[in-house]
Nucleic acid binder design. Sequence first.
DNA 1: TCCATTTGACCAAC
DNA 2: GTTGGTCAAATGGA
Length: 140
Amino acid sequence: RNNDKRSRSLITVVPHYDGHHWRKYGQKNINGREHARSYYRCAYTEQNCPATKTIRQQDHNVTINCEEETAKYIVVYYGHHTCCDGNTRNGAKNDPGMDLIQNGKMAGAVTELQKFDPGDVDMPALIEVLDNPELNWDII
DNA sequence: TCCATTTGACCAAC
DNA sequence: GTTGGTCAAATGGA
């Protein structure tokens, strides 16, 4: 039902890491599927940040960097962040995604669709892309 | 005690 | 009536 709003979607193995701090507010089993859909909103809603996202796990896994099979998630973003632009770059505390980024898994996950050079992803640049409301992502 | 997550209920769109 | 998104109380961990 959010389809009428501007949204961006991508596939990743680390749906929780995008440089922002998210708070989960709901989860539902959709249409009897195997995997539930999770609902997240920006933790900075008190700053009138309207950003939300939904994460649903793919039924099939993806192989990253020709090594191991990892669960694949479709992440759909609605709205864009208006909260403390800049300091939310570090807003995600204790972020498990950083480990994945450093060993290249995040790079592999993103580059799967973005055709970036695996292992050479500029995360700040990637976050800028994710933040950019002018880019109407529809890579899926 | 604070904060994030879980989970069932509620509501609006279809 | 069904489905998808949100709310809010309960719960657990730090």
